[in-house]
Design a binder for these strands. Structure first.
Length: 203
DNA sequence: CGCGTTTGACCAGCGC
DNA sequence: GCGCTGGTCAAACGCG
């Protein structure tokens, strides 16, 4: 599948509304790198979109840097980063997004996703795809759309917290990251939980 | 046969 | 209250 293609491109940024809680959380654990089992590692100092260009290590690829940190969701229902794009939708907390340069929308991030919807949003000429984690009881959702300004980029946002390890047979390194009992590293779940906690998400 | 995708319909929140 | 918009459902379909 697109697994092998997914991450060989440069990951430009993540965003987002949760900048405050996430950065705060990251700062609290500034000694520990942020570790994304399914994606790689992000250094806390790089995690603040507003502060510095960041680095993003994709699993199986080299650490790639992106010149300009780019966060596009300010949590108030508007998109930032370049021209502000108003959006009428609500801005649920606890969501993390990435802007990734990739030819394929669907990337193998270690989890199994089931598509449950596709919609043409008005703010973008591109379709938005909705995915949900296949594991029962795990309500994590994910939406994928192409960047309006740069069709070469894919915007992926995760919503929710995985309450299970990554399905096996995917990546040994990813599994290792999850099986670590009390790792000093951060996982997606941690970030989500932190963001959700400090901003009263439904999760 | 099991699981994922497709697709239009449906629903809920928000603005006017 | 109505219509727009984004998000979700679910039945049919496709594929391994």
């Amino acid at each position: 599948m697109a697994a092998s293609l997914g991450f060989n491109s440069s990951h430009e940024a993540y965003y987002y509304q949760a900048a405050d809680p996430l950065v705060a959380a990251a700062a609290a654990h500034s000694a520990a790198p942020l570790s994304f089992p399914e994606l790689g590692a992000v250094r806390p100092s790089d995690y603040s979109p507003a502060l510095s260009p960041g680095y993003f290590a994709a699993a199986g690829s080299e650490m790639s840097s992106f010149p300009t940190s780019y966060y596009y969701y300010n949590g108030a229902g508007a998109y930032d980063g370049g021209a502000a794009r108003g959006v009428s939708g609500r801005a649920p907390a606890g969501r993390i997004g990435f802007r990734t340069r990739s030819e394929v929308e669907v990337m193998d991030d270690g989890f199994r996703w089931r598509k449950y919807g596709k919609k043409a949003v008005k703010s973008s000429p591109n379709l938005r795809n909705y995915y949900r984690c296949s594991v029962e009881g795990c309500g994590v959702k994910k939406r994928v759309e192409r960047d309006r300004d740069d069709p070469r980029y894919v915007i992926t946002s995760y919503d929710g917290v995985h309450n299970h390890p990554t399905p096996g047979s995917h990546g040994a390194s990813r599994e290792a990251a999850y099986s670590a009992p009390a790792p000093p590293t951060w996982t997606w779940s941690d970030l989500h939980a932190a963001a959700a906690h400090s901003s009263e998400s439904s999760y």
